[in-house]
Design a protein around this nucleic acid. Structure first.
Lengths: 196, 196
DNA sequence: TGCTCCATATGACGAGTATCATATTTTCTC
DNA sequence: GAGAAAATATGATACTCGTCATATGGAGCA
């Protein structure tokens, strides 16, 4: 793929396609991302797609990266607004909120909880992007656990991320709203106990 | 769909199709289950499929149920072999073992960790089957937490299941084997701390 | 052995897919 | 404003998918 000047028209279009693809991943999963639909969502027709990406897989990899960046930004915003000393639970409460359960339907929220089980079947580029994103997420949680040593904080952060993602996955999967709420509440308590 | 006599030839064939479909869900996810491939895997040709199931969705729902039953049996076997008093950690260690990370590639292991993020997009029958299966799993863990009261055990069980599934999802998604192992180890410690 | 019925196979249809060659429109430069 | 270059649209190809109508085969019974 050739070089594209920053800020050029083509670059802006590429960005629109990428945003649409990131939305599609959260809404429909990796397998559900169709070139034609993404292009339509970006306000374009399907044919021009290959002027921007070498293949559908290349799009998926770039979109996975994009989705990760968007989520990290969202977490950083929540962190900035949190009351000092309570940053971890602010993240947890945001992640396990009702609105995050339904967010995927609108193409918003955590892409790992929305399509994570498809990642092992994706091309290496996607897997690499997602792995990077997961490490970032762990690092972000790790920084909110200052009372433990660096190594212990890292250990705890990994399990906290696992609990959050697992809880959101289950909360979205079950068709019983009360169970969905119960799962998230209990995950919150588990994290609080482990971090407090 | 008409009634089928138990033990009849047709029933046996239906069972073969179902097993093949359950394998396919774990290998390729719900969206990756194709009627033709499943039939071929069951040793049949694609056309005869509709003599056994009304639609692909009906197959998915039945296969989700089947996959849940298979996993429950597997857990029960592990439970029977565990040393008394250590049942919970026996389950945890089996669930987070190296072999379970790679199991999906062979169509084995937990279907929720293999295709759970696709469940919200499936038909109501699939969602119902999966919800039932999740409740069973929570109940099974709950029974291994006798030192807590019934209500507290249920609370804890939900978060334990979330942690296990989240950890396995992440361990399968990342392309760094060391990180995969670290995530599972830390999840194990979190569960041990919460249950011990 | 011959007939009937159940189970499975063959083959086809229409819709949707990724991909690409080519045409058209838009944008920029002189 | 005219011509050049970039960006996007049109249309086609080859393929896969779920679904179904119909044909074939084989088992059990007379």
């Amino acid at each position: 793929m050739e070089q594209v000047k920053a800020g050029s028209k083509k670059e802006q279009t590429r960005e629109r396609i990428l945003r649409a693809a990131a939305r599609a991943i959260r809404k429909y999963g990796y397998e559900g991302v169709g070139v034609a639909d993404v292009m339509k969502d970006a306000g374009l027709t399907h044919g021009g797609f290959y002027a921007h990406f070498d293949s559908r897989d290349a799009l998926l990899a770039a979109a996975a990266e994009k989705a990760g960046l968007e989520s990290a930004e969202s977490l950083s915003r929540a962190l900035a607004k949190a009351t000092p000393g309570d940053e971890l639970m602010a993240i947890v409460d945001m992640y396990l909120a009702d609105s995050h359960v339904t967010a995927a339907e609108q193409g918003l929220g955590c892409a790992i909880a929305a399509a994570g089980t498809e990642v092992p079947r994706q091309c290496p580029e996607v897997r690499r992007a997602v792995s990077r994103r997961i490490k970032e997420l762990i690092g972000l949680i790790e920084q909110q656990l200052p009372e433990w040593g660096k190594s212990a904080a890292h250990e705890k952060a990994m399990s906290v991320v696992a609990t959050l993602i697992g809880a959101l996955l289950l909360a979205r999967a079950v068709d019983d709203p009360q169970l969905s709420k119960g799962i998230r509440k209990s995950a919150r308590e588990l994290v609080r106990g482990a971090a407090g």
